[in-house]
C-alpha cells in the first residue's frame, strides 16, 4: 500500500510541477492545487498506513485499545486542506482579475513588473 501511495504522490508532484511550468495562469492554479494534494498524500503516507482501530474512545471504554491508528497526520492534512481551500479560492479570484486587467493568460506577457523602465521611456 505504501509503495502504491508513494508512486501516486510522486505522480501528483510530477503533474503539478509540469503544470506549474506551463505558460498559462489557469494551468498554474491547477499545478498549485495538484502540489497541495501531493503534499497531503505524502503526509498521509509517511504518517504510517496501518490497519488498526479508529482512535476514538467508545461509550463503554475509557481508554484506547491498541492497535489504533495515529490521528495526527489526518488532522494535519485536514488543516492543510482547509487552508488550501482558502488559498485556492483567492488564487482563482486573483487570476481572474489579472486576466481581465492584463488581458492575457500568458506568462510571457506578464513582465511589466520587471520591465518597468522600458515601458516608461518608450
Amino acid at each position: 500500500m505504501e509503495v502504491f501511495l508513494a508512486i501516486l504522490a510522486g505522480a501528483l508532484y510530477a503533474a503539478g510541477l509540469y503544470m506549474l511550468m506551463r505558460r498559462s495562469i489557469v494551468k498554474l492554479i491547477m499545478g498549485l492545487s495538484l502540489l497541495g494534494h501531493a503534499a497531503n498524500l505524502l503526509i498521509f503516507t509517511v504518517g504510517r498506513v496501518t490497519r488498526a482501530n479508529p482512535p476514538v474512545i467508545g461509550h463503554e471504554a475509557d481508554m484506547l485499545h491498541a492497535p489504533f491508528a495515529d490521528p495526527l497526520p489526518q488532522a494535519l492534512i485536514l488543516t492543510a486542506i482547509v487552508i488550501g481551500f482558502g488559498v485556492q479560492a483567492f488564487a482563482i479570484v486573483l487570476v481572474k482579475r489579472a486576466y481581465q486587467t492584463v488581458g492575457t493568460d500568458d506568462f510571457d506577457q506578464m513582465r511589466s513588473t520587471d520591465r518597468y523602465e522600458d515601458e516608461l521611456f518608450k
Binding site: 503534499a39 497531503n40 505524502l42 503526509i43 509517511v46 504518517g47 497526520p73 494535519l76
Partner: peptide, 9 residues
C-alpha cells in the same frame, strides 16, 4: 508542509 509531515512521520 511536506517537511513537517515527514518530520512527524
Amino acid at each position: 508542509l511536506v517537511a513537517v509531515g515527514i518530520l512527524y512521520g
